[in-house]
Amino acid sequence: MENIFIVGLLAATLRVATPLIFGTLGELFSERSGVLNLGIEGIMFLGAFVGFTAAKLTGSLWLGLLMAIIAGVIAGLVMALLTVRLGVNQHVSGLGLTLLWTALSLFGFRMIFGEPSVMPSISTFPTISPFEGVPYLGTIFEQRLLTYIAFALIPLVGWIINRTRFGLNIRAVGENPEAADAAGLNVYRIRTQSQMIGGALMAVGGAFLSQAMLGAMSFGIISGRGWVCIALIIFANWKAIGVLWGSLLFGGFFALQLALQATGIKLPYELLMTLPYIVTILALTIAGRNVSVPSALLKPYQRE
């Protein structure tokens, strides 16, 4: 009994961590290039809506995912237009875009599906099980391909940011855009590209929720997961490897709370849900002074 509980918990942890990993890695690209993207909550919602709707209408889950990625790239471009090209305040633009993408998605959902008594649904991405038949491992690792991609992306993104020319450019414009510009880099272009990649990853995180976990589009589908990613990035100290620990910790916590709720044990689970947020604030407070926040974060760059 206890084994089944723990195995189920571990499997759920990997599942719940998946959208957080996509979202946080997306935010990582954005913030390392010097832009705080508070549009993440809205982009994840947009990704969930577009992924679900395109999959429902075309009958192809992968086509749905592709459309979600395109929507995410466009959302990244709009964020870049406002904050990179025009240098508009990043907090307000990001928050405004979260509101815009949410409103647009809800508008689109109502236009396409009306107000149905039974919510439309799709069959979700199938699970794959590399350890089929192996006790425990078989169940724990029975996951969707997207979950494997999410975990594989962590070292890949770390490698891109730390070891490639492109990553060096991202870090350069995020730390010191004036020097990067003097060295011949196009600050606008690199920051815009980071926004587009980031938007795509955030949208995939949202699409995972509607296309892999729920098989439906609910209005509370993101319910603050984007804000959790904003917290996770600080928790991860702006490093890809930190995203792994952070998302496992948060994912594990959410999974534990869901599992305990399912067992019927009387617990104030709403209050337990506040713990990850409180832990993040504590982490922020303790680590406050030695975090490696990108130096040019929040600073628009204007070429004279």
Binding site: L82, L86, V88, L99, L100, A103, L104, F107, M111
Partner: peptide, 23 residues
């Protein structure tokens, strides 16, 4: 048309206003 059109108009107005201050 869904009532969410109202939210869409408001948020577009916010972003356009922000851009206008610069433009």
């Amino acid at each position: 048309l869904p009532t969410y059109l109202g939210d869409t108009v408001q948020t577009t107005l916010l972003l356009v206003t922000l851009a206008m201050f610069v433009l």
